[in-house]
Computed example of a mutant assay.
Amino acid sequence: MIELQPPTLAPEVWLNYRTAAVRQLAFALASPNILSSLPPELQIQHAFTLHADIFWQQHYLNYQQRLAYLDLHPEALHNFLNQLKSTRLGLRFEMLMWFWLLDRDYHPFELLGHSIQIIDGAKTIGELDFLLRNHDTQQIEHWEVALKYYLAEADFSLPHWYGLNRSDTLARKLNHFSQKQFQFEQALNFPIQQRFAVLKGQLYFPHLYSQNIVDRTPHWVNRARRLGTWGNHIPENTADFYRLQRHEWICQNVQASSLTNQWWTDGLYFQATTSEFYMYRAASYLSYPPLHVE
């Protein structure tokens, strides 16, 4: 199997913590965006940007003391997350970001509003995840946050990255950012001066591939984030692979949460000995024939 990770892979500092929710909070903050830049083929209607990896690294360093405390005393984080009744991972990720943004002692962002509905007459035309005042720049920022898992097919170009629901594609999500979510000039009577997409999660390449395919990896895929693989077959070496529980898609728990599998079903699997993430999908998921080593 060809190694997908670069030698400069950022340290996965979220694994330093023992409490599951704190590991997830550390991941939400410290992990880089899954994209290092916007794909050039994306048609930009309303401009937005991605934070650089160093942005998240620095804010993690500023928050380390708080995370260490929460690892020993997680009650405040647990109580905050318990407000969420939905099981959707994207909403849990948004709650984790919200928790951090409310911790004003550790960053320059003043939270002006969350889940702000924009209403035109009797019609809701949009909703903003976060509206912030950056006290370092004195600018008003609009952040949209998303936790996404996309699987690469075909030539790995922008149109060929699919979510677990095949109607959820990377291209569709980026277009939704540009055409709809970042269309607003103001909110809560504040002029919006900066727009940022916080797009985290994980990307997956086909498990059976050749070096020339890897060499065609788009430059906008962020190689500072650990990449996974996916396939519709059970790997030959299944030793130590176990199926991650839903919340562990954000960050796996310290201890394996399920037994190593004698049978496989759709889901995300992790092998501790190699730190490999493998997304198993039924053959019916594919729009292309199964890939083979060239």
Rank of each mutant, 00 (worst) to 15 (best):
A26G: 15
E127P: 13
Y269N: 11
Q271D: 13
W249A: 09
D155N: 14
T124L: 09
Y278N: 00
Y242K: 09
G90Y: 09
Y285S: 10
L208M: 08
K123F: 10
Q255E: 15
L42W: 01
Q183D: 12
R66V: 06
P39C: 12
S37R: 07
C251G: 12
P206T: 10
H142L: 01
H160W: 12
S210M: 03
L291M: 08
P235W: 06
R104F: 03
F177K: 01
V221C: 03
R281H: 07
Q65T: 11
Q202A: 10
L199Q: 04
S275P: 04
Y280T: 06
A187M: 12
Y204D: 00
L268A: 11
P191L: 11
F93S: 01
Y242P: 03
L131R: 04
G113E: 00
Y162M: 08
I140G: 05
W14C: 07
L67I: 03
W14V: 06
P191T: 12
N212G: 02
D240V: 06
L84M: 06
I54R: 13
F55V: 02
H207I: 02
A239G: 09
Y209G: 05
Q5N: 11
F48K: 04
Q179S: 14
L29M: 14
W161S: 01
L244Q: 11
Q24I: 05
Q5K: 06
V214I: 12
V221T: 02
D105L: 10
H219L: 14
H46T: 06
F130K: 01
